[in-house]
Design a protein around this nucleic acid. Structure first.
Lengths: 337, 337
DNA sequence: TTGTATGCGTTATCAG
DNA sequence: CTGATAACGCATACAA
C-alpha cells in the first residue's frame, strides 16, 4: 500500500497524489476527489520513514528522561506529560530516551541517528556532558533547567534561587529566626544538580541578608528519609521553627515526623518551599509554596524548540520563570516560647 | 555524512561498508579496520530513516499512554519506565502516543504510518476500539490489561479479581463482617475499565462466599476525594470495620480521614488492597497489600511483543500475574465492640 | 493542471 | 572477498 498504488487506482501519477495530499501545488477538484476516495477506501497513509528520508526531517522530537531506576518526581512527570501533549498538538511524535550519564546507547542513537528534528533534555547537571554532545552535533535542543554557563543555548527553567529567597523573606517577616533548608539528596548535590545547588545558595544568601540562623540538610527522595531527616534535625537544632524544602518525595515522611513530634502546622512549625501544586494541596495543611509550573515549562520548551528548528540561525532564547508563592496554610508567625 | 562518504574515504564501496557494519558478509580484517577508523574519526552513524525504509522495520516500539490531562498513577508510571528501560536493553527506541479515546491523530499516525514495529497499549477498556483498530491493521501489539474477550490476542495483566478475593478472605479470617471496596472513579467504572470492574466482581463474589456484608463506593483519583469518600462511608455504614482498595491516589485522603476520625490502624480499622509497592510502604502504618508488579509487567510486555514481531505467525501468548499479598501492618482482628 | 525524472541513505541481490 | 546496482516510498525540480 504505497503512493504508487493510490496513483494507479486513481488513474493519475504519483506526484499528483503527493501534491493532492500536501497542497503544495494546485490540483483540480475532481482529481482531488478521486484521489481522496481511493485513499479513504484503502486507508492509505504515507510511510513515515520514506517521507522523513525524502523531506530531511522526521516530524519527531526526542525527549531525554532520567532512567526509570531513578523514580520520577511529580514535577518531572509533569514535564513529560506536557511535552508529549504539546508536541501532539503540533502533530509531532515524541521519542523517549532514558539516559543516565556518560556513554548511553539510546542517547547516542537519538543524537546521531537523525531520528529526531530536535531534543528536549530534562534533569541536567550544572556541567552536563550531554549538553556538550548536542552542541557539537548541531542538533537543535532545549534544556529544562540550565547549565552553569549557558552561553548561547536555549533553555527554560524555574528560578530556584529567587523562589527560595522569597520563601526565606516570608519566614523572616513572620518572625522566624532559625530556619532549615531540606534539600534533595547529597548525591544530587555532589553531582551538581542545578535546582539543589541554586536553592542552597539562595537560602544561604537570603538568611544572611536577614540575619537568620541557617541550617541545611540533604535528604534522599523518599518518605522514610524525610521522616528520619526531620527527626534528626529536630534533635540537632531544637531552636529551628521553620523549614524550606524542594524535596517533594520526602513530604509524606516530614508530615509523619511533624505528627509524631506533636507539632501542629503552622502553630508550632512553619513549612514552605518549591513544590508541585498537586502535592502542595495534598499536604495537611495545604502548603504555602511556590508551585513549579511544570506544564507551562514543558509547553514552553516545545515552543522554543520548534522556533529553533524553524530558524536554525536564530538568536538563542530562554525563559526563567519565577512563579508567585501561593499563600495557603502552612506558614505562620513564630510562636514565642 | 553518509555511508558513501565513509566508503570514499576508506577506499571501498558502499556495500562493503554496510557489510562491515552488519557482519552479514565476510569482510577482510584489514578493510574492517580501515572502515572503523574512518567511522570513528567522523563519528558516523547510519541514518535511521533510510535504514528503516530499506530494511522494512524501524527498530522502534510504540507506547500508547493516557493523555497527560488524566494524571498517571504510580502503577502506570511504573509501566512506562519499565517498558522504556526494557526496550532500551534491546537497543529499541520508544515512541510515545498520548491517546484518549476514538479518533486520535497521534494514535493513527502510529498505527498506520509504519513508524513502529509494534505497539504496547496500556490502560485499555473492556471494550476498546483501539484494540480493534490494531488488530485490523495487522500491526503486532501487546496490551497491559486485557479486554473482555481477549480471543487470540497478546496481553499481560494482574488478576485483580483473584487478588481482591484474597484480600477479602484475609479480612474474613480476621473476623471482619462488614467491609467496603473503595474503587476507582465512577467514570472509569462506567467507561468499562477492567481493573475497576473485575475488582468489583471479585469483591462481591468473595464477600458473598464468606457471608460478609459488602459495601462498594467509587472514588475519584485524588486525595480530596479519598477524604470525602471515607468520611461519607463511615457515616453511611458505621458498622464497616475494614476496607479494600485499588485507588492509590485516594490513599493520602483516606489516611487523613482515618486520623481525623481518631481511628487507629489496624486496631480500629483494617485497610488492604492492590497498591504500588512504594505507596504501600509510604502509608502509615505500611499497608498489607498485593503489590502490583508494574516493572515486571512492563518487561514482560516488551518480551511478548518482541516474540510476536520475530514470529508474526506465532500462537498468541499472555500472562496473568497473581502476586502474593505482602503482610505488613495495616490489617488486624476486628475489635469486638 | 498534470506527468517525468531524480534524489534522499541504506540494505540486499547479483556479478565478479 | 568486493563492486555495481536495484529496490524501499516519498517529495520536488523540471517539463509540458
Amino acid at each position: 500500500m504505497n503512493i504508487g498504488e493510490i496513483a494507479r487506482r486513481a488513474g493519475v501519477s504519483r506526484s499528483t497524489v503527493s501534491y493532492a495530499l500536501s497542497g503544495k501545488r494546485p490540483v483540480s477538484a475532481a482529481t482531488v476527489q478521486r484521489i481522496n476516495d481511493v485513499i479513504a477506501e484503502l486507508g492509505y497513509r504515507p510511510n513515515a520513514s520514506a517521507r522523513a528520508l525524502a523531506e530531511g526531517r522526521t516530524r519527531t522530537l526526542g525527549l531525554v528522561v532520567p532512567p526509570a531506576s531513578r523514580r520520577l518526581t511529580d514535577v518531572q512527570l509533569g514535564f513529560v506529560g506536557s511535552v508529549v501533549d504539546a508536541a501532539a498538538a503540533h502533530d509531532l511524535d515524541v521519542l523517549l530516551s532514558p539516559s543516565g550519564g556518560d556513554h548511553d546507547r539510546s542517547f547516542e542513537r537519538i543524537v546521531t541517528g537523525r531520528r529526531v528534528d530536535g531534543v528536549i533534555l530534562m534533569e541536567i547537571l550544572l556541567e552536563d556532558p550531554r549538553v556538550e554532545r548536542l552542541s557539537q552535533a548541531s542538533l537543535p535542543f532545549v534544556t529544562i533547567g540550565h547549565v552553569e554557563h549557558p552561553g548561547a543555548s536555549w533553555w527554560v527553567d524555574v528560578d530556584y534561587g529567587a523562589l527560595i529567597t522569597r520563601c526565606v523573606h516570608h519566614l523572616a517577616d513572620l518572625g522566624h529566626e532559625e530556619v532549615v533548608l531540606i534539600n534533595r539528596s547529597a548525591e544530587l548535590v555532589a553531582a551538581g544538580y542545578g535546582p539543589a545547588l541554586r536553592s542552597a545558595t539562595g537560602f544561604l544568601e537570603a538568611t544572611a541578608a536577614r540575619g537568620l540562623t541557617a541550617r541545611t540538610v540533604c535528604c534522599a527522595d523518599d518518605a522514610a528519609a524525610g521522616l528520619a531527616c526531620f527527626e534528626q534535625l529536630r534533635t540537632q537544632w531544637p531552636a529551628v521553627t521553620a523549614a524550606v524544602t524542594i524535596n517533594e518525595a520526602a513530604l509524606p515522611g516530614v508530615q509523619r515526623a511533624l505528627h509524631r513530634a506533636g507539632l501542629e502546622v503552622p502553630r508550632d512549625f512553619s513549612l514552605t518551599g518549591v513544590i508541585a501544586e498537586r502535592l502542595a494541596e495534598d499536604f495537611h495543611p495545604p502548603l504555602t509554596a511556590a508551585d513549579v509550573p511544570a506544564v507551562e515549562l514543558g509547553r514552553l520548551a516545545v515552543d522554543l524548540l520548534l522556533a529553533q528548528i524553524a530558524d536554525r540561525g536564530a538568536e538563542p532564547r530562554h525563559a526563567l520563570l519565577e512563579p508567585p508563592i501561593s499563600l495557603r496554610s502552612s506558614t505562620g508567625a513564630r510562636r514565642r516560647p
